[in-house]
Design a protein around this nucleic acid. Sequence first.
DNA 1: ATGAAAGCGCTAACAC
DNA 2: GTGTTAGCGCTTTCAT
Lengths: 351, 351
Amino acid sequence: MTDKPDSPLPPTTRRRRRHGGLTLRDVAKLAGVAPITASRALNTPDAVSPEILARVREAVERTGYVPNILAGGLASRQTRLVAAIVPTISSPVFLEMIEALTRSLTAAGYQLMLGQSGYADSREEELLEAIIGRRADGVVLTGVLRSPLARRRLLASGIPVVETWDLTPTPVDMLVGFSHSRLGSAVAAYLHERGRRRVAIISATDERARQRTDAFIQTAQALKLAGPDGQVPARYVAAPTTVGHGRTGLRELLAAHPDIDAVFCSSDSLALGVLNEAHAQGIAVPGRLGVIGLGDQGFARDLSPALTTVRIDGNLIGETAAHYILERIAGRQVAEPVCDIGFTIVERSTI
Amino acid sequence: MTDKPDSPLPPTTRRRRRHGGLTLRDVAKLAGVAPITASRALNTPDAVSPEILARVREAVERTGYVPNILAGGLASRQTRLVAAIVPTISSPVFLEMIEALTRSLTAAGYQLMLGQSGYADSREEELLEAIIGRRADGVVLTGVLRSPLARRRLLASGIPVVETWDLTPTPVDMLVGFSHSRLGSAVAAYLHERGRRRVAIISATDERARQRTDAFIQTAQALKLAGPDGQVPARYVAAPTTVGHGRTGLRELLAAHPDIDAVFCSSDSLALGVLNEAHAQGIAVPGRLGVIGLGDQGFARDLSPALTTVRIDGNLIGETAAHYILERIAGRQVAEPVCDIGFTIVERSTI
DNA sequence: ATGAAAGCGCTAACAC
DNA sequence: GTGTTAGCGCTTTCAT
């Protein structure tokens, strides 16, 4: 029979790494219960007797104990963390969604972890790595995931995913968005219906902006809103779109095509710039020039003339996305986890 | 001699909870090394022979392994997470700081976790709890921490803290901000210097706005910029300040005090509203009315007339805060971890 | 209802 | 340079 040696050091000298942080064990000891009982008192209060519950709560109160979510998450495989990736938080169009997401998730006891990809694929992959690394319980993506590698990894991670702000026949998982091409077409049709006959566009250059622009131009051409050469005058600006871009955009557009009578701007900031430039040049809006923006930012309704724009219900996107994620986390399958929330043209006074 | 019983179950039947997730052990096995060696290959590549490094990297590549940061953080007591609390991300003034923070932290291999307190103390405590619970390596606060309980808890947690956007003689830990009262005074003095003689103010109502307003009014009175009754006309609006607030603010101000010749707005959005309302009423800016904003948002320079405003270098706040936190994490004591970054009045055309 | 033991996936500490 | 061992602080599993 082999005699197993005792541990090389006496128990009290056993190397410990504790750095003085307060742990559940300390609380449990103070309450005179086992750690697991203290854990239950905190997580499933109904599963312990009222008396013990009170004792544990008092111990927590007295010590100021804050549970280590890392340790809990590691053991339970639940991090109560949902990540969202947006191109940028500087663009007000995403703000509404982020706030709705924060609200819904917080209410459900989850925390939102926000990442900015800056419209760059490489950064998107980095963020995804951080998200998977932290074992987020869910991910909300802005736009659809393009990189096949990123798609595969995310899928392999098993994390519930909602893609937003766009529609695609092949979502990674769940989807809530709207059709950018239909939006572009709708705006062209709207301008036509309002009697405009020579339209132009100032647009950003990201993928979704491109979809809107293409559709806008195509529909405009079909409706004979193009110039004599069959072209629809367009200016492209890099994100983020600014008021300054709107001003120079209109200036250039007007210089080359003095006969345009309406401009579709791919953001309300651009539209504000166009309005400003028109004012500076003494061009009547909507009299001689119609302007339509995108985003329905707060200021749109407050300008004079009030800005006609296209509204996307970011709030609904955020709430729906949160709902999808939370359902999936709860183990329920969402029946039809694809949602087209559409868009609305908000008629005001600039067209 | 007591015979220690073997483990109650044979090793192979030992209960395991593994749910199929890829772990470092799998990677190590594939590379033919011990887990710790694989860990070193990933975290301290220099501490490992090139040949083994290559083998581990290949194993990672082939399996698509993503380290579990929770587990790593738990063991190493480093989460590579820095949290920031801002009142709201809808207010563009904080955006620049957030972006600088994100940039600096990302570059150093840290992740920013953003929380919105919504100007409410209760929410601030909740967020703090989440931050301590996740064992963030640092916290950046917007404004100074008021609740004594929150101060104590944060201090007790040992997490490095930077308070921003304000100055106080008694910071919790580190500080980078500017004096809101000095700002208010400076604006009053500036208006005086520019020849204005009846000034007014439209302001938000949060703590820092109040400091600015008080100082503005006091200095204005001292410089004889008040009305005949010795009062400085003021409108107060709840956050978030909007263009609409600016419009109604000016309307009300003018109705009650037709002789005012300058307005200090506590945000550029308010100023934009004032500009709009003035335009709608045919009031010349800067001729009859001077306008000064706060924040130097992107559009300020692009308006016509271009908006005179007060610039806060959010970028510098973010970078400095990140620097302080990172230094502290690295175990270095920052010599003077209090920084007044001041402010700048940006002269343009509305005054 | 409560507790003991084991393990979540990783790294610090200590050998060799 | 590489490996062994023992945790990090919590929750799951199983037993009482």
